[in-house]
Amino acid sequence: MPKLTIDLTTCKKSGQCYYMQPALVRRGADNLPELAVAEVPANQIDDAQDLVDGCPAGAIDLID
């Protein structure tokens, strides 16, 4: 199952991820994101790809 990764050192705290896909990422302390799922369900791959494209800092990746 594919997984999301977030590089918190390059994250700019825009909050796009938890706004766009709250089922996959939630807002954590200090406005930093936290993964809400360990693996991305098959029917949410396109949503996960949105997170990768929608992160203005390029801090999110989708890996197999």
């Binding site: 796009q16 706004y19 766009m20 949105d50 990768v52 494209d53 929608g54 992160c55 203005p56 800092a57 390029g58």
Partner: peptide, 18 residues
């Protein structure tokens, strides 16, 4: 929201860092 989120998803892809 919620209409804004749809536009944002569509536009983000054309302006992503990659």
């Amino acid at each position: 929201p919620p209409a804004h989120a749809r536009f944002r998803r569509l536009v983000n892809r054309s302006l992503s860092p990659r």
